[in-house]
């Protein structure tokens, strides 16, 4: 229950920071996808069910800033959570490097899709112009945020609990 509330709060915080700090953290049209980091962490540490729920909720909140394409982000992040959960057994879910790489890969897949469907531009050109840079930027942000998310959502059990 507590983890669920924290996950919802983290999703809301990711969308809020991305919208509120969008202008400040955007470099050459590229910005980190904070929601991707959270969805991938949930997929790796919890499983696809939680990741899909968080992805849908966060995507819906992100869609509220762009009502014209309502449902697009929700669908994309839901699929992203499902995909992350499907491959979690092949990765090392508790390793930071694996989480960062997975978040960057997810951003590389999701950001160009959302951008091309929103703007009507070509997927490949958006992938080359913004997708790769955003994935790298997301990886850098993940290095900073994942330890925080890990400590917040998955606190280590005390000795007695062990």
């Amino acid at each position: 229950m507590r983890r669920g509330i924290l996950a919802i709060f983290a999703a809301w915080l990711s969308v809020f920071l991305q919208s509120a700090l969008g202008g400040a953290i955007t470099v050459a049209g590229m910005a980190p996808d904070l929601l991707c980091i959270l969805v991938m962490l949930a997929a790796l540490r919890i499983g696809p069910l939680a990741a899909m729920r968080i992805g849908f909720l966060g995507g819906f909140l992100a869609d509220c800033y762009h009502p014209a394409t309502m449902g697009l982000c929700a669908a994309c992040y839901t699929v992203a959570g499902f995909a992350g959960g499907a491959v979690r057994d092949r990765l090392y879910p508790e390793k930071l490097a694996g989480q960062v790489a997975a978040a960057a890969a997810l951003a590389l897949a999701v950001v160009p899709v959302i951008a091309s469907l929103r703007s009507g531009g070509g997927y490949l050109s958006i992938l080359l112009r913004h997708g790769i840079g955003s994935a790298v930027y997301t990886a850098a942000a993940a290095v900073l945020l994942l330890p925080l998310y890990n400590r917040l959502l998955f606190p280590r059990p005390s000795g007695r609990e062990r």
Partner: peptide
């Protein structure tokens, strides 16, 4: 969830 997204977009 995809159906819900589709409903939202519709």
């Amino acid at each position: 969830l995809l159906l819900a997204s589709l409903v939202l977009s519709a």
